[in-house]
């Protein structure tokens, strides 16, 4: 009995030793030389492999960063979130001019209150499927279906379907603007826009291209293409896409004139401080001049 135990120990031990030596030799012979910087750069990235940078995952992006730093001594053309880029630049001993941060914007305000559901959907919880099946609960063929294809695709847990509102809502702190959700949405509702100065943004929260009369039946806040904002804008930042207004974020100076003039409340101004009523402002000015 003891013999068997002993023999097997010896045989396996010797075998293990020989194989270990072979493995060591092979590992030495076929060793891949890799820049240790790549690992360091990668550890500074989020590791979500969102693909927003255009590379196949964070590792590939780190490799590209190290290569670019060695060849061109710059990180031009390589984009991740601004905080991550500054970290990467520090590791590589470079400086980056901060790209304007971007964020995903859900261009639909068809909440349960604004666009009441006329029909009840039961079935597979896939927006892409429901989109082929019917126009949507409110009847608007461009509205957020609220089944969460974008939620499933988001690697940063930054977008959720609000159970009360019934539409997708972006978490401003978590969103990095990678654009995965824009591809997931079958109706093209989500857009990547610059985060804006002080996190303030103005956008048309609607992508509906139907005629005004039909839109009015379906939704309280849908864009009807009245062009009032177009006429009001002093910076020519608004363009009409059929019966839908679109605000060009590069031209918009955030004056909020379009928000005031919109009869439907389709244009949203986010993170602005509440305005003082106009009358009061005038009075103050008058008082000052009197004094």
């Amino acid at each position: 009995m003891n013999d068997i135990l002993l023999y097997s120990l010896i045989v396996l031990g010797v075998l293990g030793g020989i194989l270990a030596v072979i493995l060591y030799i092979v590992a030495q012979k076929f060793k891949v030389e890799e820049n240790p910087l790549i690992d360091e750069v990668e550890s500074n990235l989020s590791g979500a492999n969102c693909g927003g940078c255009g590379f196949a995952g964070c590792r590939a992006f780190a490799e590209a960063c190290v290569k670019s730093a060695a060849d061109k001594n710059s990180l031009a053309g390589l984009n991740c979130t601004s905080s991550d880029m500054s970290k990467v630049a520090a590791v590589l001993g470079l400086t980056v001019t901060a790209e304007e941060p971007k964020i995903a914007v859900v261009r639909c305000s068809g909440t349960c209150e604004n666009a009441p559901k006329k029909t009840h959907y039961e079935g597979a919880d896939i927006c892409a499927f429901a989109h082929t099946l019917f126009a949507g609960g409110s009847g608007c063929p461009n509205a957020c279906l609220g089944l969460g294809d974008c939620v499933k695709k988001c690697a940063f847990d930054a977008i959720h379907v609000d159970p009360v509102l019934g539409i997708a809502v972006v978490d401003e702190d978590k969103c990095v603007g990678c654009g995965t959700c824009t591809k997931a949405c079958p109706r093209g509702i989500i857009e990547i826009r610059p985060k804006g100065k002080n996190n303030r943004r103005i956008y048309v929260s609607c992508v509906n291209v139907e005629k005004g009369a039909i839109t009015m039946k379906n939704c309280k806040v849908g864009c009807i293409g009245c062009q009032k904002c177009l006429k009001e804008c002093p910076f020519e930042a608004i363009e009409m896409r059929g019966t839908l207004a679109y605000i060009n974020p590069d031209k918009c100076k955030q004056c909020r004139k379009c928000v005031d003039v919109c009869p439907r409340g389709s244009i949203l101004a986010v993170n602005f401080p509440p305005r003082k009523p106009k009358v009061e402002v005038k009075e103050e000015v008058n008082n000052e001049s009197k004094e």
Partner: peptide, 13 residues
């Protein structure tokens, strides 16, 4: 389970 819904989606794709 809405099997057919998922299969239709898969078939479409």
């Amino acid at each position: 389970i809405p099997l057919l819904d998922y299969i239709r989606y898969g078939k479409n794709k």
